[in-house]
Each structure stands twice: as structure tokens, then as C-alpha cells.
Simulated scan of single mutants.
Amino acid sequence: MSEEVGTLYVVGIGPGLPHAMTQEAKDVIRTADCVIASNLYQEFLRKDGTIPPESETESTDEDAVLATRPDGTEQEVVRSSMGRQIELAREAFERVRDGEDVAHVSGGDPNVYGKSDLVFTMAEEDGATDIPIEIVPGVTAALGGAANLGAPLSNDFCTISLSDKWRGWDEIEEKLRAAAISGFVVVLYNCWRDYERAIEVLREERADHVPVGIFNDAGRADAGRNLEDETHTITTLGEAADHDEKVGGMGTSILVGNHETKVWRNDDREYLVTPRGGRDVDDF
């Protein structure tokens, strides 16, 4: 093992497009010795040279390439995919022990259904207490989607994943009901799983006229992977389940307003706004 260890960075790149990454995320990825990222995120990161162009690479194996930066230095780029996350975490630990800085790329924010918990879980499993770990935040879908919709998260809100891979529907339903009763604006992730069922639970505790925003690939513009690239639709809770054509998979999230959320219109378009509550203009 090298006398000087590197650092394992878990880097949130937001929607993935270069303009939407933080400067810290760009700097960490650009200077890392090794970048672990899916093919899709590699494509995004090459758009502005955050990682070297594909034409300047040499394959080291089927899942990794050695890329040459404009200044002549080299960076290894490793393909991440589902089913390889344990293997990739262990590979990252070994690289860090050998003195490399490793950027493990996560879409959105690593702490919002991203990769940060996996890294810490694997470090505990393997007793890898010698590995420095740093989390670099990114823009999660709830924030990107809210920006497209206007100001729907200006008061208290929560996110709830509809994925039942690690928890049963009973637990998901309990969270949905508690959030609805408590008055939170709710952002649903993983909406390809039982989103109609989730909407029905929320309807039991919240009025049908409450505004809802359905958004796809927030922040990806014409580089979206679902439906017709980046889209957003404003509807109501009573009609949200009637928009199957707008729910396109992993890139879809649904924002359910509360009793204060309203549709606001100007000469440009419609927005969703949730006031912070109890304030008027003179309070600012």
C-alpha cells in the first residue's frame, strides 16, 4: 500500500449536464486519477471536457479506458453499471490505498437516493476505516424540478421514494399518509413504481384540487432520456393519475402541493407557488 493514501470522492453531478454541476464537482472530477461513472454520465461529462474526449482514450479492459487530458496527463475512466456497485466500491478502496484520488459519480445528489450510503456501508462491511471519504453535493431532481415549476418548495417539504426494493409498501404508505396529514409538499421519486397507488393514498388526506407538478429529467433540457426530453406538466391531485403518458421511468418525479400551493400565472406561463406562510410583501 502507498504511504500516501488518496481520497474517495462521491460526486453529485445534478442532472448531469455540465452547466448544472457545481464548480467543486467539476474540479474534483477533472483532477481525479480515476473517475467511476455510467456511460450516460461519461457522455455528459465529455461535453465540456470535464473528462477527456473519447477519441483520446485507450482501453484497459472492457469497462475501463485510459484517457489523455489536453495537458498530456492521464485519467482512468471506469464504467459504472447496476449489479457492479459492490465490486466498484472495493476497487475504489484499493485505488485510494494506492494513493489515487477517485471520483465516484452519482446523479443528482449522493445523499438523495444516490451512492453515498453504499460507499459507507461497504466501508463498514470491509473494515475500510483507512479510506478518506468526501461527499460533493449536487442538484437533486426535487430541486431541479421545483425550479422549472416556480417556487413550490418555499415552505416545508419532503421526498419519498416509491421503490419497494428495500422496504415494503406498508412502510411507504405510512410515510405518504404522514406527509400528507402534516402538510408537507411531497416530491415522489421512482414514480415508475406504483405512482397511481401513491396518489390514491395522498388523495385520502388531501383535497383533489391541490396542484401537482409532473416533471421529467429536470435540468437535462434536450438531453433527457425519457419521453420528449425535459418536460413539466401542471395538473391537480385528482387528475394526476390520468397522466400515464407523462410518467416515463426513473427520470420522472411528481410534486404534490399542499393546501397553500397555488397556480400562479403571468404573461409567460403557469407556475406553482407555495408561500412560506403568514407573510406579506412588507415582511421581506
Score class of each variant (00 low, 15 high):
147 A>I: 10
147 A>K: 05
147 A>Q: 01
148 N>V: 05
148 N>A: 15
150 G>L: 12
153 L>P: 00
154 S>A: 14
155 N>A: 15
156 D>M: 02
157 F>Q: 00
157 F>D: 04
157 F>H: 00
157 F>T: 00
158 C>K: 06
159 T>P: 09
159 T>H: 07
162 L>R: 00
163 S>G: 02
164 D>Y: 02
164 D>F: 03
165 K>Y: 11
165 K>V: 06
165 K>R: 14
166 W>P: 00
166 W>T: 10
169 W>N: 01
169 W>Y: 05
170 D>G: 04
170 D>A: 12
170 D>W: 01
171 E>N: 03
172 I>L: 06
172 I>V: 05
173 E>C: 01
173 E>G: 03
175 K>F: 03
175 K>S: 01
177 R>A: 11
177 R>Y: 07
177 R>T: 12
178 A>W: 09
180 A>Y: 07
181 I>L: 15
181 I>Q: 13
182 S>A: 15
182 S>C: 11
182 S>V: 09
183 G>D: 06
183 G>W: 08
184 F>C: 04
184 F>L: 14
184 F>P: 05
185 V>L: 10
185 V>K: 03
187 V>Q: 03
188 L>N: 08
188 L>C: 11
188 L>Y: 06
189 Y>C: 01
189 Y>F: 14
193 R>P: 04
194 D>A: 10
195 Y>I: 01
196 E>H: 12
198 A>P: 09
198 A>V: 13
199 I>S: 02
200 E>D: 13
200 E>L: 13
201 V>E: 09
201 V>A: 10
204 E>I: 08
206 R>T: 14
206 R>N: 15
207 A>L: 08
208 D>T: 10
209 H>M: 13
209 H>D: 15
210 V>A: 04
211 P>W: 10
214 I>K: 00
215 F>C: 09
215 F>H: 12
216 N>Q: 11
217 D>W: 06
218 A>Y: 01
219 G>Y: 03
219 G>E: 07
220 R>C: 08
220 R>V: 08
220 R>W: 14
221 A>T: 13
221 A>D: 07
222 D>C: 11
224 G>K: 05
224 G>C: 08
225 R>T: 15
227 L>S: 08
227 L>G: 13
228 E>Q: 09
228 E>T: 12
229 D>V: 14
231 T>N: 12
233 T>P: 02
233 T>C: 07
233 T>R: 07
234 I>P: 00
235 T>E: 02
237 L>I: 14
240 A>Y: 10
241 A>C: 09
241 A>P: 07
241 A>E: 09
242 D>R: 10
243 H>A: 07
243 H>T: 10
243 H>N: 12
244 D>P: 11
244 D>N: 10
247 V>C: 02
249 G>K: 08
250 M>G: 02
250 M>L: 09
251 G>M: 06
251 G>V: 03
254 I>R: 00
254 I>D: 04
254 I>V: 05
254 I>E: 01
254 I>F: 10
255 L>P: 01
257 G>W: 00
258 N>E: 13
258 N>R: 01
258 N>G: 10
259 H>G: 15
259 H>T: 15
260 E>Y: 07
260 E>L: 03
261 T>D: 05
262 K>M: 13
262 K>W: 07
262 K>F: 08
263 V>H: 11
267 D>V: 01
269 R>Q: 09
270 E>H: 10
270 E>F: 02
271 Y>S: 02
271 Y>P: 06
271 Y>W: 14
272 L>F: 02
272 L>V: 13
272 L>P: 06
273 V>H: 01
273 V>D: 06
273 V>R: 00
